[in-house]
Amino acid sequence: MTTLTLGKAMNTGLRKAMENDPKVLVMGEDVGKLGGVFRITDGLQKDFGEERVIDTPLAESGIVGTAIGLALRGYRPVVEIQFDGFVFPAADQIITQLAKMRMRSLGALSLPVVVRIPCGGGIGAVEHHSESPEAYFTHTAGLRVVSCSNPVDAYSMIQQAIASPDPVIFFEPKRRYWDKAEVDTESTDWTPLHAAKVVRPGEHVTVLAYGPSVKTCLEAAAAAAEDGRSVEVIDLRSLNPLDIDTVTASVDRTGRCVVVHEAPVFNGYGAELAARITERCFYRLEAPVLRVGGFSTPYPPSRVEEQYLPDLDRILDAVDRTFAW
């Protein structure tokens, strides 16, 4: 066991993947000497060389587009998008090319490309540095979309994503990069990439979260326990595909469900969860599935971002409201 921050766990996972497969490449802006603005690729260029850790021109569409070409030549590129709000210049290559080329080729082509995106708010940043664009990508068939919330998962999930023959959009909760945990870097006995995890068992209400919100939900659950309310927290980990069975097994027991994410609630990922849970657990539900998330506005200036982001109190408020029906 090694104590690692989430950022270092990412770094260690990337390093393992590069050691295990010479075809794995890392590419993006400032990923070389600098090690990325969050230092996730720290030291990789020094150890694996400039041919495998590529400082690219400052052009997101170009990064993803050339990563597709490298994948067509047999490489496994891991692309870093510097910040969530910078992925949109690459959206065309991701949505119209990366996601669809396999079907276009009737299955002849696989594109094992991982697009890493540091996401979410809470770091006091300027505009475009705090967004949660996951729903754009979960809406796109052909992509797999995952979101890690802690160092243990960061370490394993990045390696699993790189091993996937399908393109994976990999969200990293940037404000949790400095959270620490014990990580077993010797073991490969990992939870499957697309399985959800019950991270805190409970009886009265199910709270669903992913990425940066998981920690907030765990804190909310601990606070609720003091009031005698038993909250089950599930870390979805994978957004597409969704491990719906783990979710419904929980909601069938608790009869209540709250979904939490930082992205705007309107048309957000929680809407899909609410619809599916309602379909499958209709007769077990004691209350409608409630959603807590960002407002239906652009991400606000950082001085008010704490008001925008779902916090412990707003989550507990929603939990309380599920008992009002």
Partner: peptide, 25 residues
């Protein structure tokens, strides 16, 4: 011979990435 690409210009990046792969080979 790669697949036909309909979105104008997208394939030039795939071709460039593929060429970068040839370099790495």
């Amino acid at each position: 011979f790669h697949l036909y690409t309909i979105v104008i210009g997208s394939q030039t990046l795939h071709a460039t990435g593929y060429a970068m792969g040839i370099q790495r080979d």
